[in-house]
Computed example of a mutant assay.
Amino acid sequence: MSPALDRRTRWVAGSAVALALLFAGAATVASARGDGTQPVPRTPSSASADAGFARDMAVHHQQAVEMSFIVRDGTRDEDVRRLAYDIANTQANQRGMLLGWLDLWELPKTAPDGQGPMSWTTGGHGGHDMRGMEGMDHDGALMPGMATRTELGRLREARGKQAEILFLQLMTDHHKAGVDMARACARQCTVPAERRLAQGMVDAQRSELDLMADMLAARGAAPRP
């Protein structure tokens, strides 16, 4: 990521990180009360779905923010720029909340040794086949749906309609994998506020997937197979 892009990303996310600690504190205290019969643990473990989702989705969101800033510089189309702004703003704020939870729980932001991306999901990787990815260089793609370094380079170089189509295709892949990951947290996470956040991601990103399909069709293109 270029220094200028990194500064813009941190600027968008900055206030979210500070506010996230307040939201996370309230959410964790609320979850500790439970229902009087089966109280939810106050602090999830590092190997829990709660911590795993927070770590992995923070990484996933960071790339979505990066791609959104790249395309805003590559096109003047207001519809695409508006979508990119909405994605960057929403996902930067959500990323701040996820990192805030990890800070509050005093858990590392990197996975424990031996735990690969999305290893916290029941049945493995949110429905995605990750066999062979651990320990390998997949051109910078850390998880399913994430763009490779080569694809990010192509997006930076693209302009106009070419940039719009590539962004919409890459973000479609990104959202599909993000929806699967969020669904896994909605099923498995124990902190109620985190489950609600995950379900909100599912609903919002499914709506954006429909929008991006329409935008691709309007440009004579389609999502990648």
Score class of each variant (00 low, 15 high):
residue 93 N to R: 15
residue 33 R to Y: 10
residue 17 V to L: 13
residue 65 V to C: 05
residue 99 L to S: 03
residue 151 E to G: 06
residue 162 Q to M: 09
residue 82 R to Y: 05
residue 131 R to G: 11
residue 76 R to D: 15
residue 8 R to G: 07
residue 41 P to I: 06
residue 178 G to Y: 00
residue 110 T to M: 11
residue 160 G to P: 02
residue 32 A to F: 04
residue 133 M to L: 14
residue 106 E to K: 14
residue 172 T to W: 08
residue 216 L to C: 09
residue 219 R to S: 05
residue 86 D to L: 13
residue 205 Q to V: 00
residue 41 P to G: 02
residue 17 V to A: 12
residue 77 D to L: 09
residue 104 L to E: 15
residue 185 C to I: 04
residue 214 D to P: 02
residue 25 G to S: 08
residue 162 Q to D: 15
residue 98 L to F: 10
residue 10 R to S: 10
residue 223 P to M: 02
residue 39 P to H: 07
residue 184 A to T: 13
residue 117 P to S: 09
residue 101 W to I: 07
residue 10 R to T: 11
residue 24 A to M: 07
residue 139 D to W: 08
residue 199 Q to E: 15
residue 39 P to R: 07
residue 36 G to R: 03
residue 99 L to F: 03
residue 56 D to L: 02
residue 203 D to A: 04
residue 87 I to P: 03
residue 196 R to F: 14
residue 117 P to K: 01
residue 34 G to F: 02
residue 187 R to N: 12
residue 136 M to L: 08
residue 189 C to S: 13
residue 162 Q to T: 15
residue 70 I to R: 00
residue 202 V to N: 00
residue 154 R to W: 12
residue 69 F to W: 11
residue 178 G to T: 01
residue 113 D to N: 08
residue 33 R to M: 13
residue 100 G to H: 02
residue 174 H to I: 01
residue 89 N to Q: 11
residue 195 R to E: 15
residue 26 A to N: 10
residue 83 L to R: 13
residue 124 G to F: 04
